Simulated scan of single mutants.
Amino acid sequence: MSRRIKGLVEFEDDRGAVMRYIPHANGGGLVAPGARVHEDAWLDRTAYVEAGAVVGPGARVGAGSWVDVDVVLGPGVQIGSNVHLGARTRVGARARVGANARVGQRVSIEQGAIVEADGVVRDGAVVESAGRTRRAGYGQAA
């Protein structure tokens, strides 16, 4: 269930907790209190940015994507549609994450790196700018 009150959007989750979001001026995506989204960033109206997250200038977050708690997106980052970025993930400047990708927690995606569409990056992995991944692994969704 959701409702809108003077720019505030509230949702009740499955446990009955009320989650509050504020639409971002550029695209209308929903931003939790405690998140910081640069005014030049663009969030699709169906994208969510959770508390503690930081979205840098020129970053774009696609439809249905979820930027989880304490994620940091650098300048010019491109996030495709239906992407989940796990908690405490770091995405370097001008990196790209393709549509439907699933990125685990505490992942580091280096500056200019690319996670392909439908990619899966496990918790704690490092995605290098040449497309190589250290630790934990990277693959295609089944």
Rank of each mutant, 00 (worst) to 15 (best):
A87V: 14
R134T: 06
A87F: 12
G112W: 15
I109V: 14
A87L: 11
P57L: 05
D118A: 07
G92T: 02
G80A: 00
V49T: 05
G76V: 00
A101M: 09
A130I: 10
Q111T: 15
E39K: 14
V69T: 13
D118S: 08
G52K: 09
R60V: 06
N100A: 08
R102D: 12
S65E: 08
E50H: 12
G104H: 00
Q78V: 12
G34V: 01
H38P: 10
W42Q: 08
L30V: 10
R94E: 11
V71C: 01
A117F: 07
H84S: 06
G64P: 15
A35G: 14
V107Y: 01
V55W: 04
D40E: 11
E110A: 15
G62S: 08
N82F: 13
A53V: 06
D70G: 10
T133N: 11
E50D: 12
W66F: 15
V49P: 07
V31D: 00
V49A: 10
G92W: 07
V61L: 00
G119W: 04
A59M: 12
G74H: 09
R134A: 05
A32D: 14
V120E: 01
D123F: 02
V115D: 08
L85I: 09
R94V: 11
D44V: 01
L43I: 00
A99W: 05
Q105L: 14
N82L: 15
V91E: 03
S81M: 12
T89L: 01
G58K: 01
R88P: 04
G131E: 06
N82H: 15
V107K: 02
G80D: 01
R106H: 11
V31K: 02
G28W: 04
A113N: 03
G62L: 03
W42D: 03
W42K: 03
D118G: 08
G76W: 05
R94C: 14
V54L: 11
G131H: 08
G74S: 06
G131D: 09
G92Y: 02
V69G: 12
A117I: 09
A32T: 08
G27P: 11
A95L: 13
Q111L: 12
R36I: 15
V103L: 04
Q78D: 15
V107T: 02
N82I: 00
I114L: 09
T46G: 15
D123V: 05
A101N: 11
